[in-house]
Design a protein around this nucleic acid. Structure first.
Lengths: 194, 194
DNA sequence: TTTTTTGTTGATTGACGAGTCAATAAACTT
DNA sequence: AAGTTTATTGACTCGTCAATCAACAAAAAA
């Protein structure tokens, strides 16, 4: 039965299952067996490919970060001017793909993981850095030297909107989140406009 | 050796130890033994007083919420006018007592707990509701019907600033957080002022 | 065709941890 | 003085789970 070249397929299935299970259970207290079962294999095989549960978590984080990064990059290619750039970053952050209960729940738990596992912390800092520099690129032409402060505020606001999504009942509302962030932006930029 | 009337003392010690341990370990994966040891008693006694680990967590949450609520209420008594009210709420949120690594770490983990444990979710919603209505009281005279949207944005920003504190290295900087929040407020209110 | 590499799992190990219990002791009540 | 309530713990039970291992199967290489 064993077909060759299974490794990438199995790994991808495990990564996906890890995110789903963390989102479903709502914590990092998921067992390797649960994950493996959802991915359609034995827990032994999961260990065979990843070595440890922690490695699975990190791979899942990298995957989410990669998806998010790709979405932002994709949105940025067809962008003209700083306002449109900022809007694109926001749209990607709150897109249906990223801003869904399961991913948001996983995200929150990765934040917890970052308190313990240095590599997780590193990854999250990479995300923060990328977000920051993306915002900065859009903000500098519009706000000059206030750009740094604005980027920090807007970054925190975005993270906060994610956090609050966790507690909400009902389906996620990316549009509302974008509206809140744009509202922040507009009012900050109005004062500074020549 | 047993003196009477230990219950409240023991419970308080356990609650405190729970927060410290969660903050120290950085996750909810703390054992009852760890907590009990830090509180200077056996794990059996911890179970005797609280029944379960979950009850300990919830008691710790209630305690943090109580402290926060008390601090806000205390700051609000000597307040005159809506601006000063808003400033007081912010000052309490980022006071040295609340905005310290240990409490922030515990806070983050309570957010995770809220995904699983309904009572934890309820408590967090109580906090959100209180924060919201406090902000609203200050915002309505200043922003009219934009107050609701502003309160939601500001609430998310505050939570986001807490979240980001978790990743930062170095000592917490409440003043910077307050500055960011005030900056948000001022720019939002400038546009609306008569 | 033998050997090696890759895929796969059931069973097992070993550790750890939540919650219970029986036992001990001091203080309060009657 | 006898009985009750409160405080306290060491030892134990029972379950769970990460990680390992031995064994088996199929494809590829030799």
């Amino acid at each position: 039965m064993p077909k060759l070249g299974m490794e990438p397929i199995r790994k991808a299935a495990l990564v996906k299952a890890t995110i789903v299970e963390i989102g479903r259970v709502g914590s990092l207290d998921v067992t390797v067996s649960q994950i493996a079962k959802r991915a359609g294999m034995s827990s032994a095989l999961a260990h065979h490919y990843f070595g440890s549960k922690e490695e699975m978590f990190l791979a899942a984080m990298r995957h989410i970060l990669t998806l998010y990064g790709a979405e932002v990059r994709g949105a940025l290619v067809l962008v003209e001017g700083p306002e449109s750039r900022l809007r694109a970053v926001l749209a990607a952050s709150f897109s249906a793909a990223n801003f869904r209960r399961e991913a948001v729940g996983a995200w929150l738990n990765f934040w917890v993981l970052a308190q313990t596992v240095p590599e997780a912390k590193r990854l999250l800092k990479v995300y923060q850095g990328r977000l920051r520099s993306n915002l900065l690129a859009g903000l500098r032409p519009l706000a000059g030297d206030r750009a740094e402060a604005l980027a920090d505020g807007l970054g925190a606001l975005i993270d906060g909107l994610y956090l609050r999504e966790v507690l909400k009942s009902g389906p996620p509302d990316g549009a509302a989140a974008i509206a809140t962030a744009l509202n922040y932006l507009n009012s900050q930029l109005e004062g500074a406009r020549p």
